[in-house]
Write a protein that binds this DNA or RNA. Structure first.
Lengths: 199, 199, 199, 199
DNA sequence: AATGAATGAGCCTTCATTCAT
DNA sequence: AATGAATGAAGGCTCATTCAT
């Protein structure tokens, strides 16, 4: 039962819990959720099999925690870029920064990205978590842009769409490697789209 | 072993093979790859468990075939819309048609979409197949647009990007249901982006 | 799911199912329910681990089947003795026959007896099965005794009680081996009680 | 190892040991031996997991101690009733008192009764303890009855048998609930048997 | 070419017991 | 004497794949 899961209060315990999440993060990224066994997670985290179930209800529970970190790792830096952008906004520059950062982040997380999205399809809790965290980020970004003088009309929709486009492009760049695509040119095109969007 | 996989020459055999692929298609869509057992595929296809391994090397081999159909089902109708568009092109109208069609298609295939992309991450063969089939479609569309008078500069990149944006939007619409998003407005925004892109 | 349990229709399958039940019977008798693993059951039955779950929903399901056989093995012979007793009834003789038979049967089943009764405590389905099958036997015996001229007053209660006393005595004889008890004398005492009961 | 088990000399320690036994008693009664974990026993006893192994060699060792209490709780009150019965004995009254008391006791201990008997089957030490403690009680009762003027012929056998019958009846009453049995009538029958037995 | 029963390796999870503090 | 986090062996069960028929 979930209620029997230990809530670590001491630092050492929290550290151990984080080690397990980190191990899950890595393994889910490398070989996917179904390619990872709990025994492997424990081994990589340097703990015993049993204690994993002291910190998590089950394997899926680890995934939920990994998802949380993933979202933070992937979206938060982008939100930060927006937040720290100088005013008045140089949209072109901001777009480029966001694109570069997203590509960089995606390089480290592309596989996990797919794994998580696939599981969201099957698992309602994962899906809910995803939606919830995405909401938070969208909201955060929208408010920052508004504050920095961007036109508020349909802003939420625009932000959401922009995030999707950027993600999509980063994914393309990092992952698909269609060799007939000139990604540098594509980046410029995406950049223009973003600038037009928020002008 | 793959080498022992029968290549069905007779009509009845081909029909049976297709039934298995169709069953795989449905089940992978409904409950994902890992939620589907080969026994279930056989049952749904109305064949015996054993014969599945007469037509396919293994479970993954079925997935590869499902992927082929998926790409056809999802991209071909869009390519057709472009191909059948009247000249001179009414870009706005074309964009709307494509968007509506994509949403419609995505409604039937969203889960499979995620499943396939996730597996592409882990499985090189699946990934290769994906890239290969996407290339084909991109190429096909680009040539059509060119023929219909669209500016050829960076066309491949633009087509690819457009497809990603459209997919992304359709996915958003069908799947995520962030309740603060006004999808009708978002659709208009996407439409404008597309029109601008190919103007 | 229980619904996926194969219902064996062919003789060979039924034979195999019975082998598994028999293996369960033996192992549960020897080392108890919790001392038995499904792998051991399979091994003793001469089948694979997997196929056990083709015939039974789970380990407990095997137990339920074992219970059925147990009841038949232990009660039915007693019911038969009553049924075949010559009329007019020689109560003393009948009592002795029943006692001897019960001891004989208990020698083979004492351990399982305890195991099953203990599980009935924890497992509602096992308990229900037990009660149900005991009812059947009590009813059967009562009707036979009535037919053979035994006084019908409170007959069901008497039969039930008699069965309990006989069981209890057999258990004592076979199992407990309190060395200060003279079981031959005890048998006579029990015999007298039974004769008095149905006189 | 058993040799490392602390023999508590100080009062506080003895108290703690008893708390653990009590917790074991309750849990074994409620959910059986295999349904109880040592962690739960410790928790219910209000002690740490580790210290349980300071007082007991292993889980089974707790059971042995629970068994001791059980026997005391279940048989001693009956021995007391016999001991305190007025002379000359009113056998009918004594039998009724014993029956009522046994039912009352069984209501609190039926599950544990089964659990213990089942384990006695598999575990020699448990069985030995059982036999030993039953001997003590039988002996005690026999001497009391003799003192109060009951015929000494085969008295041990009769006492043992009587205890079995009474237990069996109480178990039936408390536990089985065959709904076609009139337990009030059955009680009268049992009472008569007992009176006849010691007359 | 076809069947579907059978195989058995492997997975998630539990829990009696230990041990660092 | 006491704590409770940690260990890891072992169990129930699943399912991709094989094979006798």
């Amino acid at each position: 039962m979930a209620s029997t899961v230990r809530i670590p209060q001491q630092e050492r315990s929290i550290e151990k819990k984080n080690k397990i999440i980190q191990a899950g993060y890595e393994l889910f990224s490398e070989v996917g959720y179904y390619g990872t066994t709990t025994v492997e997670i424990a081994k990589r985290a340097g703990v015993s099999t049993g204690i994993v179930y002291g910190y998590f209800a089950d394997k899926r529970d680890i995934l939920i925690c990994v998802l949380e970190i993933y979202i933070d790792k992937v979206y938060q830096p982008l939100a930060d870029i927006v937040e720290n952008a100088a005013t008045p906004l140089d949209l072109n520059r901001l777009a480029l920064s966001v694109l570069d950062k997203t590509i960089e982040l995606h390089e480290q997380n592309a596989k996990l990205h797919n794994t998580l999205h696939s599981l969201a399809t099957t698992d309602e809790a994962v899906n809910a978590q995803f939606i919830n965290l995405e909401n938070k980020i969208t909201d955060q970004m929208s408010r920052q842009l508004l504050k920095k003088g961007v036109n508020g009309e349909n802003l939420t929709e625009k932000v959401h769409l922009a995030m999707n486009i950027v993600q999509s492009f980063a994914h393309e760049t990092v992952f698909d490697s269609h060799n007939y695509i000139n990604y540098a040119k594509m980046k410029n095109i995406v950049c223009n789209i973003l600038v037009e969007l928020f002008k």
